[in-house]
Amino acid sequence: MAPLPQLPPDPDDALDDYVGLDADTAAGRARAHGWTTVRALPPGVVITMEYLVGRLNFEVVDGTVRRCWKG
């Protein structure tokens, strides 16, 4: 079996602090904290389940972040 890859760590960030922010403010803050990929998604959208180090996802409703998760 192949060894597990040594992935770089995600930025150390409090994800709950993004909830309630407007999407543009949240995206700017995420990039300032070191997230390399930031995506805003509508509720219920179909996305892949692959984990991407450095990616932060926002569920956005009416321009406001309702949920935030890594990967």
Results as ranks from 00 to 15, higher is better:
residue 1 M to G: 15
residue 1 M to A: 14
residue 2 A to S: 12
residue 2 A to W: 10
residue 2 A to C: 05
residue 3 P to H: 07
residue 3 P to D: 13
residue 3 P to W: 12
residue 4 L to F: 13
residue 4 L to P: 04
residue 4 L to N: 11
residue 5 P to K: 09
residue 6 Q to M: 11
residue 7 L to T: 12
residue 7 L to Y: 10
residue 7 L to H: 07
residue 7 L to E: 12
residue 7 L to N: 07
residue 8 P to A: 07
residue 9 P to V: 03
residue 9 P to K: 08
residue 10 D to W: 06
residue 11 P to L: 01
residue 12 D to Q: 15
residue 12 D to A: 15
residue 14 A to N: 15
residue 14 A to Y: 06
residue 15 L to T: 09
residue 15 L to S: 09
residue 15 L to H: 08
residue 15 L to R: 09
residue 17 D to G: 10
residue 17 D to E: 14
residue 17 D to Q: 08
residue 18 Y to G: 00
residue 18 Y to E: 01
residue 18 Y to S: 02
residue 18 Y to V: 04
residue 19 V to H: 07
residue 19 V to G: 05
residue 20 G to E: 05
residue 21 L to D: 01
residue 23 A to P: 01
residue 24 D to R: 13
residue 24 D to V: 11
residue 24 D to Q: 14
residue 24 D to Y: 04
residue 25 T to I: 14
residue 25 T to L: 05
residue 26 A to W: 10
residue 26 A to S: 03
residue 26 A to P: 05
residue 27 A to G: 10
residue 28 G to M: 10
residue 28 G to R: 14
residue 29 R to T: 06
residue 29 R to I: 02
residue 29 R to D: 03
residue 29 R to Y: 08
residue 30 A to V: 06
residue 30 A to W: 05
residue 30 A to T: 05
residue 30 A to S: 06
residue 30 A to K: 03
residue 31 R to E: 11
residue 31 R to G: 02
residue 31 R to P: 01
residue 31 R to M: 07
residue 31 R to Q: 14
residue 32 A to G: 07
residue 33 H to Q: 15
residue 33 H to N: 15
residue 33 H to L: 14
residue 34 G to E: 10
residue 34 G to Q: 12
residue 35 W to T: 02
residue 35 W to N: 02
residue 35 W to Q: 03
residue 35 W to E: 03
residue 36 T to Y: 03
residue 36 T to W: 08
residue 36 T to E: 13
residue 38 V to I: 04
residue 38 V to Y: 10
residue 40 A to F: 00
residue 40 A to H: 04
residue 40 A to R: 15
residue 41 L to H: 07
residue 41 L to D: 09
residue 41 L to T: 03
residue 42 P to E: 06
residue 44 G to K: 00
residue 44 G to N: 03
residue 45 V to D: 03
residue 45 V to T: 10
residue 45 V to I: 14
residue 46 V to T: 10
residue 46 V to G: 05
residue 46 V to E: 08
residue 46 V to N: 06
residue 48 T to V: 05
residue 48 T to W: 00
residue 49 M to K: 14
residue 49 M to W: 14
residue 50 E to I: 04
residue 50 E to A: 15
residue 51 Y to V: 13
residue 51 Y to W: 11
residue 51 Y to M: 09
residue 53 V to W: 10
residue 53 V to L: 08
residue 54 G to H: 09
residue 54 G to Q: 08
residue 55 R to W: 02
residue 56 L to E: 07
residue 56 L to A: 08
residue 56 L to Y: 06
residue 57 N to T: 00
residue 58 F to R: 11
residue 60 V to I: 04
residue 61 V to I: 12
residue 61 V to Q: 15
residue 61 V to S: 11
residue 61 V to Y: 05
residue 62 D to K: 01
residue 62 D to V: 05
residue 62 D to F: 00
residue 63 G to R: 03
residue 63 G to N: 05
residue 63 G to D: 04
residue 64 T to V: 15
residue 65 V to G: 07
residue 65 V to T: 01
residue 66 R to L: 01
residue 68 C to S: 15
residue 68 C to Y: 01
residue 69 W to R: 06
residue 69 W to M: 08
residue 71 G to T: 00
residue 71 G to C: 09
residue 71 G to N: 13
residue 71 G to M: 11
